[in-house]
Design a protein around this nucleic acid. Structure first.
Length: 617
RNA sequence: GCCGAUGUAGCUCAGCGGCUAGAGCAACCGCCUUGUAAGCGGUAGGUCGUGGGUUCGAACCCCACCAUCGGCUCCA
């Protein structure tokens, strides 16, 4: 057995190869102590390769663990994986970590890094491992849960040894730049019934510059935070007296929403949908029929009693749409039927998960339910995916990821053939539309398979909005039928579809995607007219009137501030165009145009401005 | 729900057991008549999240509650 022993500091190191951190053997990332146990090309991983970050971050997690152990010898270590941009370690300590503890831990980590301790790998058998970690119930549990044939290894640096699969950097000195970011509570193995552990998050990079760039990136993301921009741009608010997770749409936010909804309705009209409305509450019998009282009750607002009847606020729109379907006998000639609604629903979300507009308790779904025959399923799915992509692209999103979830192994309703057809339809449609998809085998809900579409925003973050789900449960429960060609009743296929997801969530996405600078067609205020002095107020009014007549959304700033201040205000509010009107402009019947983020575009006639504006919208 | 942090004027924050709780921005009132990212002066604005407690005295210490923020398997 030969180890790749290049780069362990006290080993003879190959001249000029000091920056080798690890290697890939046939695609598998390993450290330099891995034995050559199978074939494949060995590709060294050098200091600045992306793979190197994985190794050093993993090692950084161990160094952090060692530092924690020095400060809190009684602490038990659970797991400490590498995550995107960094690492964390879950630790069981008697006293929760204070933010100040992070400084102390960091200090010790710096020492350990500076001392360049080699990281040594050791294989041991199960008994040895259980013995070694006899005082640590977490490690014991991990070892016991490892598969029979698993190779069990530990990694040691300095005085610290941890159970770990690896791989790691050759020595602690490979950690060039790191920072501990935050502490948080986390359940052991993510299970809320089990022990609450303390998690420390950290980040590690190849250099101080990269670390700094990362921290700057975090700052930038914070500036785009829809909650911050929502207040700055006066778009929406959430107030304590009204209740958590309940949104007030201010005029500017409401206007963006209305424009979006107008487009949505127009697109749905074109797309063969019929727009419907349904009430906000329904009798308990309805929710009994739909099964929500059996399967969804903990997410529903509690019962209301009136005149001896009980009602529930709706958490979903589907039962209502089913009743529209049932309002008369349907023929196969009527199908497909596509009902769409901007339906406001209320769901009880646990207080800890609420988040701005992204996770709320009251929201408006852009919901649709499609009823079709078996023969129509494939075409229908293809159409709905194409339609979804068209709408999302129009809203400014170009990149998508998709996930298909298939039939669970055990509990499910419907016939296996139905599931197969549906899954097939989803895969075919995704492929046909050029969507890359991952399949979550067995990950579907009990009532049907689905495809989720995620959009990627300007910072490359993925947001789940659209979902298209088959439902083999509700048609049964509501007894939905249509009369087929042979005169016999048949059960239709039912498909749930949310495209933007909810207006709240999608709007939050839009705000972050555009950093609050909405594209012209969505901007609540497209043009702001600014007067240089009050001598041009009349001219300003006239210009604003003309723009408004052309359907342009215009704001006015005719106050006594100096022009620099007015411009600053308009820039801060991210108004796409500013028309600056001084006496010079009035005399020549012109407007001085300034574009948000670009600056002065010079003077032109109002007609020219309108023409180019309307062309751009 | 659970762990931690936070909650002071519309907003951003200072004050951390001892005088009538402060600043900047915003608002309002003046002055300035202004040309591409903050002109100057003044005025008003606060149950210090809510409720209890400790104390001669609480924004500050303790308890409970409410809300917000960061997290709560990317599995050794």
């Amino acid at each position: 057995m030969k180890a790749l022993g290049i780069g362990v500091p006290d080993d003879p190191r190959t001249a000029g190869e000091e920056d080798i951190v690890g290697a890939r053997i046939g695609g598998r990332l390993v450290d330099l102590q891995t034995s050559l146990w199978e074939g494949g090309t060995i590709v060294p991983v050098r200091g600045t390769d992306p793979d190197a970050l994985f190794l050093t971050r993993h090692t950084a997690a161990h160094v952090m663990a060692q530092a924690v152990k020095e400060l809190f010898p009684e602490a038990l270590l659970a797991i400490g994986p590498v995550i995107e941009d960094g690492f964390y370690y879950d630790i069981d300590v008697s006293r929760p970590f204070q933010p100040e503890d992070l400084d102390r831990i960091e200090k010790i980590m710096k020492r350990i890094v500076k001392e360049k301790h080699p990281v040594r790998r050791r294989r041991l058998d199960r008994e040895e491992a259980l013995g070694f970690f006899r005082d640590d119930r977490y490690k014991q549990e991990l070892i016991r849960d490892l598969p029979e044939d698993a190779e069990i290894t530990t990694y040691t640096q300095d005085t610290f040894t941890d159970l770990c699969r690896g791989p790691h950097a050759p020595h602690t000195g490979f950690i060039k730049a790191f920072k501990l970011l935050k502490v948080a509570g986390a359940y052991w193995r993510g299970d809320e019934k089990r022990q609450m552990l303390q998690r420390i998050y950290g980040t590690a990079w190849h250099s101080r510059e990269e670390l700094k760039a990362y921290l700057t990136r975090l700052e930038e993301a914070k500036k785009r935070d829809h909650r911050v921009l929502g207040r700055k741009l006066d778009l929406f608010s959430v107030v304590e007296e009204i209740g958590p997770g309940l949104i007030l749409w201010h005029p500017r936010g409401a206007l963006v929403r209305r424009i979006l909804e107008d487009y949505w309705r127009e697109a749905h009209d074109r797309g063969g949908y019929q727009i419907v409305y349904s009430p906000h509450v329904g009798r308990s019998t309805l929710w009994k029929t739909s099964g929500h009282l059996d399967f969804y009750k903990e997410n529903m607002y509690p019962e209301m009693q009136l005149e001896n009847q009980s009602y529930f606020v709706k958490p979903m729109n589907c039962p209502f749409h089913n009743h529209i379907y049932k309002a008369r006998t349907r023929s196969y000639r009527d199908l497909p039927l596509r009902y769409a609604e901007l339906g406001t629903v209320y769901r009880f979300e646990r207080s800890g998960v609420l988040h701005g507009l992204l996770r709320v308790r009251g929201f408006t779904q852009d919901d649709a339910h499609i009823y079709c025959t078996e023969e129509q399923v494939k075409e229908e799915i293809r159409t709905v995916i194409r339609f979804s992509l068209e709408v999302l692209r129009r809203c400014g999103f170009e990149e998508f990821a998709s996930y298909i979830a298939t039939r669970p192994d055990e509990k499910y309703v419907g016939r296996p053939e139905e599931w197969e057809l549906a899954e097939e339809a989803l895969k075919e449609a995704a492929t046909a539309e050029g969507l890359e998809f991952e399949v979550d085998e067995g990950g579907g809900a009990f009532y049907g398979p689905k495809i989720d579409l995620k959009i990627k925003d300007a910072l490359g973050r993925a947001w789940q909005c659209s979902t298209i789900q088959f439902d083999f449960n509700l048609p049964e429960r509501f007894g939905l039928e249509y009369i087929a060609e042979d005169g016999k009743p048949r059960r239709p296929y039912m498909i749930h579809r949310a495209l933007l997801g909810s207006m709240e969530r999608f709007f939050g996405c839009l705000v972050e995607h555009f950093a609050g600078a909405f594209p012209l067609w969505l901007a609540p205020e497209q043009v702001r007219v600014l007067t240089v002095t009050e001598k041009t107020v009349d001219y300003g009014r006239e210009v604003a009137r003309i723009l408004r007549e052309k359907g342009i959304r215009v704001g006015e700033d005719f106050g006594s501030d100096k022009i620099g201040k007015k411009i600053r205000n308009a820039e801060t509010m991210k108004v796409p165009f500013m028309l600056i009107l001084g006496e010079r402009d009035r005399e020549k019947s012109e407007v001085s145009v300034r574009k948000h983020g670009e600056g002065d575009l010079g003077a032109q006639t109002l007609e020219d401005f309108c023409r180019s504006f309307l062309a751009e919208v």
